[in-house]
């Protein structure tokens, strides 16, 4: 359960300060599949980073499963990311020169999970890359890399997967592959929030939140 209450984010660069998020209030229940849309610079990534505990709000409060996130130490935030959140980035963000299976194992290393090899193998099989475990990122196509990233996000079995333009760098076929994965994961009960500006991608979601200039200007369910 995600609850943003009157959240603002202000970036100050020198004398100029920019309100990237402006009084955003948003609730996302468990098991929802939400697409966040909006023009470039409207604050989508800023909001996503706050949801993912990569960044903290300047004003307002963020409750994750009823627990306030503001005021948590960096280490506690790292633990929240480790236990509750799986991240998928537009630019994949896999570790270079590191095999697919090691990339997928990494969150479990930091979480101290056991049976890492086996679980990483299963996660890769789940995204259809059971035969690519020893490939390094530069030996994989963009779509395959993004599927490795999805495997990495789901391997710790987080309740929530956040994806910032996960299909932004993918061709149509790969986009459909990755979106089908998200739908599957959502059907298995996970909360999924994904940013996109492609209407075809938003089609997969049950709910579309639209941002403009840091404010929520639309929130429709289908």
């Amino acid at each position: 359960m995600i609850e943003l209450e009157h959240v603002s984010k202000v970036y100050s660069t020198g004398a100029v300060s920019l309100r990237a998020l402006d009084d955003v209030t948003l609730r996302i229940g468990n098991g929802e599949l939400v697409a966040v849309m909006g023009p470039s610079g409207s604050g989508k990534s800023t909001m996503m980073n706050i949801l993912g505990c990569l960044d903290v709000p300047s004003e307002g409060s963020y409750l994750l499963d009823g627990e306030p996130v503001a005021g948590l130490s960096e280490n506690r935030l790292a633990d929240v990311r480790s236990r509750k959140i799986g991240f998928v980035f537009q630019s994949f963000n896999l570790l270079p020169r590191t095999s697919a299976i090691r990339n997928v194992e990494l969150p479990m290393v930091y979480a101290g999970t056991s049976n890492r090899r086996r679980r990483a193998q299963q996660a890769l099989e789940r995204v259809g890359l059971g035969d690519r475990t020893d490939h390094q990122p530069n030996q994989l196509s963009g779509g395959q890399q993004q599927r490795v990233a999805v495997a990495r996000a789901l391997v710790t079995d987080p309740a929530m997967i956040l994806a910032d333009e996960p299909t932004g760098n993918l061709d149509t076929t790969s986009t459909v592959d990755v979106m089908n994965l998200f739908v599957e994961l959502n059907e298995a009960g996970r909360t999924i929030v994904l940013i996109t500006h492609e209407p075809e991608v938003a089609e997969f979601a049950q709910r579309v939140v639209t941002l403009r200039d840091g404010r929520i200007v639309g929130d429709e369910r289908r």
């Binding site: 960096e74 280490n75 633990d79 963000n93």
Partner: peptide
Amino acid sequence: TREIGIRKAIGARYRA
């Protein structure tokens, strides 16, 4: 630095 960011994003603590 980017690698550090990735590691932190997927749950690495300061100490790690």
